[in-house]
């Protein structure tokens, strides 16, 4: 079978969807806000790129994501190491964290609005919150998966508590922590879009939900396309290389 023939069936649903989209407006009479013609969506994308409004939304979204990512992981990783290494910290905090974790990140948005107002603060809070819980779990798992014999080995060679941390715990848990970064980014991305829809004044999520009120469906479709492409780009550019580098370096192969 040739390459073309192998990929042909996979293209069929796309072709069918586009054909449907092209033919529909001509075939039957329906309110175009339900599904505006493809041309309108392309025009909308063209306009938004030209007048720079799309770039502004993308910039705001990415900046919030970066802040939330830094804050969430900045707290989660040290706390995760502390929980994994110290029994008392673990006993004291776990039930509380388990409960707080079960309150889905997005449910904090309304409260965040009261505390931080509509906009930047609320959205970053929700992203950081979501990322914190996704990341702390991986950090704890990573530290606890270091074999006890290695702890004994470092200790018996005279390693101090700090040296155990820097020489064993952090490098040993690194792969898992990086996995956690990637997972937490995926959750954070959802929190970003969702947070902006509820509490945003700009950004891709805001742009998309705001269009619902005015039935500007071509803007909604543009938002979905940009959100999809941007996520693929983020994942490929940031995390796939990072993961490959560390996992290869440490000789770990994920099943």
């Amino acid at each position: 079978m040739t390459r073309l023939a192998r990929h042909l069936p996979g293209l069929l649903p796309f072709a069918a969807a586009i054909a449907f989209w092209l033919v529909l407006p001509q075939a039957i009479d329906y309110p175009t806000y339900m599904l505006p013609p493809l041309g309108q969506v392309l025009d909308r994308i063209g306009e938004s790129v030209m007048d720079g409004s799309l770039a502004l939304h993308v910039r705001d979204s990415l900046w919030r994501l970066a802040l939330g990512f830094a804050i969430g992981n900045g707290i989660a990783i040290p706390l995760g190491v502390a929980i994994a290494m110290n029994r008392h910290v673990s006993d004291l905090l776990r039930p509380l964290l388990t409960f707080l974790q079960s309150i889905a990140g997005i449910a904090w948005v309304p409260l965040a609005i009261i505390w931080f107002g509509i906009g930047m603060g609320s959205v970053v809070f929700v992203i950081a919150n979501t990322i914190f819980f996704a990341s702390i779990h991986n950090t704890v798992t990573g530290v606890q998966s270091i074999p006890n014999t290695l702890h004994r080995a470092v200790r018996s060679h005279g390693g101090s508590g700090v040296q155990v941390l820097t020489e064993l715990v952090l490098p040993g848990a690194l792969v898992q922590i990086i996995l956690g970064l990637r997972t937490s980014m995926a959750y954070g991305w959802r929190a970003l879009v969702a947070g902006e829809m509820i509490a945003g004044t700009s950004g891709l999520g805001y742009m998309t939900i705001e269009a619902v009120q005015w039935y500007k469906t071509e803007t909604i479709l543009m938002g979905m396309i940009v959100i999809g492409l941007l996520w693929l780009a983020l994942d490929r550019i940031l995390f796939v290389p990072l993961e490959n580098a560390t996992i290869k370096r440490w000789g770990m192969i994920r099943a």
Partner: peptide
């Protein structure tokens, strides 16, 4: 037939579909 479509849809997070 289905995998490319499903991978494409997966990239658009569910929250973006709500509007």
């Amino acid at each position: 037939t289905l995998s490319p479509t499903i991978n494409f849809l997966f990239a658009i997070v569910e929250v973006a579909w709500i509007p």
